[in-house]
Computed example of a mutant assay.
Amino acid sequence: MSTVRPVDAAEGGGSVAINPQGNKATQFASVEKRRAVDIDSLRALTSAMPRQKESAQAFVRAMRDGDRY
């Protein structure tokens, strides 16, 4: 009898659920491989965007402070 580790089974394309005492505790499943990012297309897209006038920190702080009360 051979035992297969849950991670190895999921990596092979399967889905493995771990059910201690009949309750689903976790599930391992395979994921699709990500496509590579086309850097030239990304640069072309972002180069046309205007630069942000304030820092990200100031923007997020103003957004949080404005919605706080």
Rank of each mutant, 00 (worst) to 15 (best):
A48T: 10
R61V: 15
R5E: 06
D65F: 10
E54V: 10
D38R: 06
A62P: 06
P6H: 11
T26E: 13
V4A: 06
A10C: 08
F28N: 06
T3C: 03
D65E: 13
S2R: 15
E32F: 00
S41E: 15
R68L: 14
M63T: 14
R34V: 02
G14V: 00
E54C: 02
R61D: 07
K33E: 15
V16M: 03
R43E: 11
K24N: 11
S41D: 15
I18P: 00
A58R: 13
Q21W: 02
A25G: 04
V4P: 00
R64E: 08
G13N: 02
D40Y: 13
Q57N: 13
S30V: 03
R5T: 08
K33I: 00
E32A: 09
A25W: 01
I39P: 06
R68S: 12
S41P: 04
I39W: 02
V31L: 12
R35N: 06
S30I: 03
P20Y: 04
A25D: 03
G14M: 02
T3E: 13
G22R: 04
M1H: 05
I39E: 10
Y69I: 10
A62R: 14
F28E: 12
Q57W: 03
R5G: 02
V7T: 10
A48C: 07
V37K: 01
S47M: 14
K53V: 12
M63Y: 14
Q52W: 09
M63Q: 14
E54G: 07
M49F: 08
G66W: 08
Y69K: 03
V60I: 15
G14L: 09
K24W: 05
V16Y: 03
P50T: 00
T26N: 09
G22F: 01
G13D: 09
D8M: 05
A56G: 10
S2G: 05
V4Y: 09
T46S: 05
P20L: 12
V7R: 12
G12K: 01
R43T: 14
A56S: 13
V7S: 14
I39H: 06
R64Q: 10
N19D: 12
P6N: 13
G66T: 07
K53M: 11
V7L: 15
G22A: 02
A29C: 05
Q21H: 07
T46E: 04
V31R: 11
V31P: 00
P50R: 01
N23P: 00
D38G: 02
I39G: 04
V16I: 11
Y69H: 06
L42I: 03
L45Q: 14
E54H: 04
A17C: 05
G22N: 04
L45V: 07
A29H: 05
R5F: 02
M1Y: 10
V4G: 00
I39N: 05
P6I: 13
A25F: 08
D65K: 10
R5A: 05
Q52K: 09
V60P: 00
R61G: 04
S15G: 04
A58M: 09
S30Y: 01
N19E: 15
N19T: 15
D38C: 06
V4K: 12
K24M: 07
D65A: 13
A9Q: 14
A10D: 10
V37P: 02
A56E: 06
D40N: 08
A62C: 05
M1K: 04
N23S: 07
D67P: 01
P20W: 03
R51F: 10
K33M: 01
R68I: 14
S15Q: 10
G13C: 09
R68G: 01
M1S: 09
Q27W: 01
S41R: 12
